[in-house]
Design a protein around this nucleic acid. Structure first.
Lengths: 200, 200
DNA sequence: ACCTGAACACCGTTCAAGT
DNA sequence: ACCTGAACACCGTTCAAGT
């Protein structure tokens, strides 16, 4: 059945290839991890030749970079909404920590891509406004906590980095499932408890 | 110049291939990261055919696993020696934390291999006695701290996991160079300060 | 027991060429 | 502007065969 002059001509230049690639990549990222992402495989599943992606990304790292940008934005949005409905500054800080851990558990592929290094994390965070904005969000919340008397003698940057380190470490350990007790049906809850224990 | 009956016949079966491969791999690991490790390249630099490594490692992951075993052992030795000469239990705990961060900074390739996931970390830690022994070391030190009154109302496992998370997060952030102040000529010192600030 | 060689099924990337 | 096809230089892995 050959198609005549329809409004939407099939088998054309595909037009939205860039977004199609990113969409599939986001799925692969969660299901099989960043190291399994292949330009050739993505291309073929988009119904396009092996080299077509190079019109939209200079190389594989650029595709990964675009995915990270999405990740930073999502993380920022999650952190921003987490502290909004808190009953106190310190509760807001704790909520941000729980949100961070939840992000790591729910979107582990993306979390690992953002933070497992490979040398690109730093530049991607500094280069991406959403990345430094996330730290800015944390820093502001720490300052609000200090304004209400908590650890007010320390530099806010020191506290913010220390708290981020704690939260980040908890997220990493939770992701590696590094607590072998049997009743770990709800990992988020267990690790939130650890987090609260370490937050004065 | 053909060689006669010498004591050490060249160009033979190489005999110590397994260790030679591991040696080269350890160098590559620090210089270019785990993802750059290639069985074929290692083999050729050992002066052996591309498939020879398969007599010693079932697959690439097995080579990585053998490297991790080395890493766990080294980390364990470092932690064990770190707390030995401390003036108090809590000082010992802090020394272990600094040692962990120092390990991450000095052997970043190995540190990333051990902890950047790829799904193998958990099993490699649980499977390798040195891995769980490292946690046992930490747990014992925490118990000594609690015996002298520190946070004695909490479960030692909770404190140990929380402290490990903190230290691990500090190590990760230090590795990503996530503090952009100019005078960061000595990262270890800066992040040790952050660590001490967060350790009550 | 340990190693080689050919073979298969993948990769990223470049470049001349097509529409 | 966007995509294709052939080509190059890599991979991991299997397997029959050599010593």
């Amino acid at each position: 059945m050959p198609h005549g002059p329809e409004t939407e001509p099939r088998e054309y230049h595909h037009r939205d290839l860039r977004n199609h690639l990113l969409e599939l990549a986001l799925v692969d990222l969660e299901h099989h991890g960043a190291h399994s992402l292949s330009l050739r495989s993505l291309a073929s599943r988009c119904g396009v030749s092996k080299t077509a992606p190079y019109r939209h990304f200079p190389d594989r790292d650029a595709l990964l970079g675009a995915l990270m940008e999405v990740g930073w934005k999502d993380l920022y949005a999650l952190l921003a909404s987490a502290h909004r409905h808190a009953s106190s500054p310190l509760e807001g800080l704790r909520a941000m920590g729980r949100g961070y851990v939840a992000f790591a558990l729910m979107r582990s592929g993306m979390y690992r891509l953002l933070f497992s290094g490979e040398g690109k994390t730093l530049s991607s965070l500094k280069g991406c406004p959403e990345g430094s904005d996330s730290f800015g969000l944390l820093l502001d919340q720490v300052k609000r906590c200090q304004a209400s008397g908590w650890k007010s003698s320390e530099k806010p940057e020191t506290i913010a980095l220390g708290f981020w380190a704690l939260v980040h470490g908890v997220a990493d350990l939770a992701l590696e499932n590094l607590a072998e007790h049997p009743e770990s049906s709800d990992r988020l809850q267990y690790w939130s408890m650890i987090l609260d224990t370490m937050t004065p």
